[in-house]
Design a protein around this nucleic acid. Structure first.
Lengths: 246, 246
DNA sequence: CGATCAATTGAGCCGTCTCAATTTGGGTGG
DNA sequence: CCACCCAAATTGAGACGGCTCAATTGATCG
């Protein structure tokens, strides 16, 4: 259930997009920003549950999430799935397929979503006049490398309660950057998906939510979370609590 | 214990380097390859145990390992370490620091090693005349993203014996690509470092080696491994056994 | 309003960790 | 060159965290 939407002159452009502080343009000066507008020639609307791309699809673009949310997952020879990330608006999908221009993962919409299509051909052409663009992509790819390494640490070094705390705080931070509340948000993924991502079972996730709730760290009602004690969660996760949280 | 070595006209260059099929030049046509030679202006010799860079150091280059081996590791606020990779010749270090040009990890030599320094300024300048260079770096960064995602799967979905099998097979594959035997090699890292990397304790690693040895999967003598049954190891790890192994 | 899927909760088991004791090997100085 | 020392690795016993299997409740959606 994909719907491709051509971008017309009066559509939203990078230069006027609310997400430009987070997305590809992050930190680019205004004049350069205006040149970016030709890069996005189309967008894709995704219904909940539908794929943006699949394993082994050819890569001809990377995608910036404009609205909604997306999960990305690996699938091995035995059919085993590992979710590698949950994307929020302003984040980029498809950067893992650039070695051989073949996707090595699946990307699936967790809710109705929309992505901006950045065709690599167009990207490289524009980058000839706007070299900074290469730097921007490099920064985003570097960020994804960091993110992956951090998750390695989460999976390799933390116990279940710490993993879930770290996960919730990470969601909270990213939603805050988007202008939402750090405290209350809706999880767009199931307990099973959280568990898969964190290397735990859905039962463990459910039990931890119940326990955190009993301990007054949060309230949870289905997928609606309210974080009640950010400092305590940070202490659990072993991360510093950002000052804005006090 | 770092020693910087300027690259002179008669030094080894990318165009004549044995590693060019694996390293930055991978898949580049000859004429373009020759232009690469000016990129590497110096190399660094590292004594065993000494750092290539540290957390929070400014990033002015990325590094291609020329000989030896290097581990990279994260360190969190509590001092907790997570090893994120063991680099072999032809592989690149420092690509995780490009978001803000500040290193977010440590890189330490596991044995006496040598790296080629690719200054980012020089890189971007050269890329103006050789646009393919940007694509090459993109491919290498994409490869690192993949590698990290695969490790997420290893940590999130596999049991201890599967993790160690996957680790050994991965080493075997990469050493094979360098022209070494798929069967016999020397582990340059301790049991503790393997365990840290795989999210297990050193005792578990030691026990697994003993068990694998008892089961005839391999022979191990300190850090000298001989893999005796690649298909069985692949079956354990849940990966397809490459044809050359039969 | 039933059907179906998601989430919760419990009981028991298993894998990995922790703590501790030994053994082995490599490096150093007498 | 040998004796010693220290770090690395092995092995065992017991504890515990997270998993499996199973039953039940609670949402959501035709």
């Amino acid at each position: 259930m994909q719907k491709r939407i051509p971008v017309t002159a009066d559509s939203m452009r990078c230069s006027t997009c609310m997400l430009s502080e987070l997305c590809l343009p992050l930190g680019m000066p205004k004049p350069e920003l205006n040149k970016l507008d030709d890069l996005i020639q189309e967008r894709i609307r995704l219904k909940k549950g539908s794929p943006l791309f699949h394993l082994a699809d050819p890569v001809e673009a990377v995608y910036a999430l404009r609205s909604g949310s997306i999960k990305t997952q690996l699938e091995d020879a035995t059919g085993q799935i590992q979710i590698t990330g949950f994307l929020l608006p302003g984040e980029i999908a498809g950067m893992d397929g650039l070695l051989d221009n073949k996707h090595v993962s699946h990307a699936l919409a967790l809710e109705d979503s929309e992505v901006c299509v950045m065709r690599l051909d167009d990207f490289d052409e524009l980058a000839m006049q706007l070299p900074m663009l290469q730097t921007q992509l490099r920064r985003l790819m570097s960020k994804e490398i960091n993110r992956s390494h951090s998750i390695m640490m989460t999976l390799g070094a933390l116990r279940s309660e710490q993993r879930l705390a770290a996960f919730l705080l990470n969601m909270s931070d990213r939603l805050t950057a988007l202008g939402y509340s750090p405290y209350e948000f809706l999880l767009r993924m199931s307990r099973e998906e959280i568990g898969n991502f964190l290397g735990l079972t859905l039962e463990t996730i459910s039990r931890l939510f119940s326990r955190f709730s009993r301990e007054g760290l949060l309230e949870i009602q289905q997928r609606e979370v309210k974080l009640l004690n950010l400092p305590a969660l940070h202490q659990l996760a072993g991360t510093a609590c950002p000052s804005h949280a006090y």
